[in-house]
Simulated assay, not measured.
Amino acid sequence: MNWQLPKINWANFFMDTGIIILKLTVIYLIYIIVKKVGFKLIARSFQKLEERKEISLGRSRTLQSLITNIFSYALVFVFIVTVLELFNIKATAVLAGAGVVGLAVGFGAQGLVSDVVTGFFLLLEKQIDVGDYVTTGSFSGIVEAVGLRTTQIRSFDGTLHYIPNRMITTLSNHSRGNMRALVDITIPYEKNIDEAIKILQSACDALAEEEPKIIEGPNVLGVQNLGTSDVVIRVIAKTENMAQWEVERKMRKVLKEALQSLQTEKD
């Protein structure tokens, strides 16, 4: 028997291939345009809400991040289905007919549903907002985005952590209400404690008048601990949120200068 390869009409082949490539290009361009327009409309809508002060800045950024995330997932899904339809492939038939793929999707969906449900309650109960300083598990940092599946937390060394929402079993939010600035300062045993406390409190009162981020105090509580060669005196202040570290640095500088001036006067 003589086997002959079927003749290929190259003109039709290249024409059909060109049409498919053209359609794919058009679909992709439409996807890019819709994505950019959608992102701009979402951003503009929340910007108007912020200008009208109908929603807090942190809450606005959180919801904007979430809606943008949902929009991206929906758009990618429509894009994939459209491409499959272009090749006359039914997306539902693929998922239903591929037993192994369907099983894998089923197992993956369990984690996805858990992520979505956990993220929903995080937002519903207002446990977290973009810009909050939080601690969850071994991660601490500033929340940059709350997505449909993951929450992004940037630590203070610049590392960006992508945490699946289902992994957030415990959450500490350090950005709710005023915070506390705490400074422990040591003085030698031979120094007069009452006089040192008086000098430190005077320096704290002066700092409170010039630092608007201090809500209450600073107050010298007194002796906190007795060391082997010195006495530990504790000073605390109530500050605006996220200003506690700045205030602590200023308190250390002012208290050190106050004690130095006391030593200079005696010398």
Rank of each mutant, 00 (worst) to 15 (best):
Q64M: 01
V26D: 05
S261M: 12
V183T: 14
I168Y: 09
L41S: 01
L148R: 06
Q152T: 10
G97P: 05
V254W: 11
F79M: 11
I197G: 12
E257F: 09
K126D: 00
S138W: 10
E216C: 03
K198P: 02
L207N: 08
E211L: 05
V100F: 09
V94E: 08
F107Q: 05
F79Y: 10
E54H: 02
R249I: 11
H161M: 12
R149C: 15
D230Q: 09
F120P: 02
Y189T: 03
T228E: 15
D267G: 09
N192D: 10
M251A: 04
P218S: 01
V81N: 02
G18A: 04
V223H: 03
L63D: 09
N88P: 09
A203F: 14
M179T: 14
R252S: 05
K23C: 08
T169N: 07
K266P: 02
V235E: 11
F121H: 03
G38D: 08
E195F: 06
G177R: 00
E211N: 05
L24N: 02
A109D: 15
V223P: 13
D132N: 01
K198H: 13
A145I: 04
T264E: 15
L259V: 00
F14P: 04
A96W: 10
I21V: 06
N225Q: 11
Q260I: 04
A145Y: 11
I27P: 01
N69I: 10
I185M: 05
I80Y: 04
D129L: 05
A243E: 14
G97F: 14
E54A: 01
E265R: 11
G137E: 08
S72L: 09
I42K: 03
L5P: 10
F120S: 07
L148K: 05
F120V: 06
V78K: 07
L122K: 13
E50F: 00
L86H: 00
K53A: 07
V105K: 10
K238W: 11
Q47K: 03
C204S: 09
V76C: 08
L66V: 03
K90D: 15
R176S: 07
S65V: 12
V247G: 00
I89K: 09
D132S: 03
G108W: 13
G158M: 13
I163H: 14
W245C: 00
D129K: 06
S114W: 15
A208M: 04
S155P: 01
I214P: 06
L122R: 07
G217F: 13
Q263V: 02
I70Y: 14
G119W: 09
V100K: 10
A104L: 15
R59V: 00
I8M: 02
